[in-house]
Structure formats: C-alpha cells, structure tokens
Design a protein around this nucleic acid. Structure first.
Lengths: 228, 228
DNA sequence: GCATATTTGTCCGTATGTATA
DNA sequence: CTATACATACGGACAAATATG
C-alpha cells in the first residue's frame, strides 16, 4: 500500500517549530471557531493565563496573533474581544473571496501542471459527511474545498490570505444552525466547479465559482437578518 | 480655501490609538524599508530594546507585528531577521498583485460610485517627481498609485492585503538603484490605466494593468539576476 | 459624580534552553 | 567540547486606564 503524498507540502506551514505563544494561539483559535468563546466576549488575561499555565507576557503574544488574523480585536486599555462580524464584514469577506479564489483559478489556468487531488478529496469528504447528515462536517469540507481551490495557484501568499479569510468566514458559521437546506446546495456547486476543472475549462469553473460565492453571500446575509 | 477631504478615511488605519509596540514597529518598519537595516540582518533584542528605551517584552510584540507583515522572519531560538526576497518571492508577489489589483478593478466596475481622486493625485505626484528627476519619489508615488487602485474596491480587507504586499514590494526596491530607465515606463502605463478608468472602461484598464504588472515583474527579475 | 476594585500596559530580574564561535 | 551570547518564558511590580458599586 502506498501513501499519497501529493500536495503534502501545502501543509508545511503547520509543521514549523512553534513557540508557546503560537501553541496557545492555536488552542484559543480552536475555542473561538468552535464557539466556546462567543463573539464579543472578552478574553481576560488573568483568567486565561492562569487557566493555561502560561505567563501574561506569553499570552499577550498569542492575543496579538489572533488579532492579526482578525479573529479577535484589540482595544487599547480594554483588552481583546472575540470578533463580531457585521453585515458589512460578510459583504467584504465575499468581495475578497471572489477576487482571491477567481484570481487563483485564472492563475492556475496559466500553469502547466494542476493537481486537483486535494480538491477532489474535499468534495469526497463533503459527500460522505452529507450522507451521514453531519452538517458541521459538510461545512468543514466546504472550507477545505475552497482552500484547495486557492492553493491551485501555487502561490504561498494567496494560500495564506485564503486561510485567513476562511477562518473569518468560519467565525460566522458558528452563529447559525448547520442545517441541510443551508449546506446541501453547496455540494452540487462544488461538483460543477470540479467537473469544469477536470476538463480544463477554467473560465467556466471561474464563472460557476463567482456565481456560487454571490449566492452564498446572499444566503448568509439572509440568515443574519431574518426579517420575515 | 477648502480642504479636499475625499478619501481621507482610507488613512484612518494610521490614526488608531496605538500602544508602544505598534509605535516601535512603525520605526523599525521605516528603518527596514529605507534600507538602514539591510536584508538578512539580525534584529537583536538587547541592542534595539536598549537603544529605543523599551523593554524586551514590548519589543518582542513589535517583532511579531513585523514578522506578520513579512518584513521580517522569525526563526525560533535564533531571533528575527530582515526579510530577504528571493526570485520566487518576486514571482509570488506579482501573482498576488495581479489577482488583487485586477480583482479590485472588477469590483470597482460593479460599484455605482468610484472616486478616482486619490489615483489622480498619485499620478500627479509621480509626474512632478519625474520632472524633478527624483526617482525614489517616483517609486513612492507608484506605490501610492497602486494602493489607490486597490482602494477603489471599497474593501477594507483588499486595501489591507494591498498595503502588505506593497510593503514587501518596496523591500525589494531598496536593493536596486532608482534609475530613470527603470521608473520612466511606469508613468506612461499609469496614465493609460487612469485614462481608461476615467471613461469607465474598466475592462481595458484591467487589461492594461495586467500587462503592466507582468512587464514590471519581468524587469525586476532581470534586475535581480544581471546575467549579462 | 465619586471612590474603589479590576484590568491592562509596561517594565524589570531571572532561570532555562538553544545556537554558535 | 566548552564557553558565551542570545532567545524563551516566567513571575513580580507599578502606573494608568477602565469598569463597578
């Protein structure tokens, strides 16, 4: 049995030897995206530093990392708070995603070799999760799908900004129920995009992706303002 | 006499009440982009903290900011060093710029109101600097021009990533002489782009921008590897 | 509006581990 | 291999700002 090592180097950013501050940041990041720390909640230096057994100095470095990733906001002399996304943030987030993801596909079209294995893997994961009716897992697979799309550009910086933007997007997903009617349409769009990519139809894939992102934005905004 | 306040809010990110760490980071940022700290040079905690009169704790927070902006690299237990750009970095940088700047123009085309005043201002500055044969100033004006282009999208996050990418680009400009033959072609391209934008020809402007960025990349790479 | 308690911002001293001459 | 310099991380201190009653 052989191991598929293709695309593994895209995970290299996870391997870097990390200091305490980054490990602490990883824990807090998980707590935030899991909703343990609610949006708007203050992250207290004394309670968290004693709870995790790290000094305040180190914890403050972790806070700065989170603030730079926009998962938290720092207010001078008031502390750091879990980010609260507004409707404008959603719109902005999707403007960036359209520019970044579509730009990545355009760049991929220029490259001689494009490895779709990670994109296919994410789609497979999404399908099996949907079969098990595990909608949070479908959401996670969707995140991976879009990250894999951005990674097609082969650009370290595009991948990095995509990671950041998707972390913010996940921040919003926490708030809303993970329902079938919300996630199910995503899968069919993903399949259409991958279908086009397999045939080298990058322009069709880009158009489908653009439509998909506009639709997702509209439905997210609809969820956040339940006017009916 | 009235003051033109249009677009001033795009400078708001400079006004935020900042702690010592961010002020220190601003100083170091200037030193790096001015070439006072050479690429690859180590930024020593003891000497800089004593020189600036801040504690090492605070200085470490500043270092983290610079590392996040990719102006410095942090190696565990070894310290932080001024970033050294490779040829691959240049290519990556311009891949990102094509995606971001062209994406910004596409977004601007969708908006009802587009304020070109900052773009025009940057072009005027570039022209007067070129008239005075002040080529470093021409380079600065060029940076402002491209930032203004990205700002047309009206997206806080696109503007932020553009600031970051341009800071990195400037990091490379430091190394090379600022000569007439390098900067002069930039101005004519800028004029073409602005000309198209004024007439609402966003697609033509985007095409010109894309060509311009590919050309600039090629000439930068040519400068960095003087094979002749 | 005021006094108090809490929290952050910043500094210092120090012990430990790591890299390098 | 040893020695030295440095980064890492900790704990304590105090002033300043903020929140609370």
């Amino acid at each position: 049995m052989t191991v598929d090592a293709s695309g593994l180097e895209s995970e290299r950013h996870l391997l870097e030897r990390s200091g305490t501050a980054e490990r602490v940041a990883a824990i807090l990041r998980q707590y935030i995206t899991d909703g343990v720390f609610a949006p708007g909640e203050r992250l207290s230096e004394p309670v968290i530093s004693s709870a995790l057994g790290v000094s305040r100095n180190t914890l403050r470095e972790s806070f700065q990392l989170l603030a730079h990733e926009r998962l938290a906001v720092h207010e001078l002399n008031r502390g750091v708070f879990v980010r609260e996304l507004t409707a404008e943030d959603i719109e902005d987030l999707y403007v960036v995603r359209r520019a970044t993801e579509c730009g990545a596909l355009r760049r991929a079209a220029e490259l001689s070799t494009v490895d779709l294995s990670l994109v296919e893997q994410a789609l497979r994961d999404g399908r099996t999760a949907a079969g098990a009716e595990d909608w949070p897992a479908v959401g996670t697979a969707s995140i991976h799908f879009h990250q894999a799309l951005a990674d097609l550009a082969g650009s370290e910086r595009i991948s990095a900004t995509m990671r950041q933007v998707l972390a913010e997007t996940r921040l919003f997903f926490v708030l809303n129920e993970n329902t079938r009617e919300f996630y199910e349409p995503f899968l069919t769009c993903h399949e259409k995009i991958l279908h086009d990519l397999r045939r080298g139809r990058f322009d069709a894939a880009e158009a489908a992706l653009d439509r998909y992102l506009r639709d997702a934005e509209a439905r997210l905004l609809d969820l956040s303002t339940p006017s009916t």
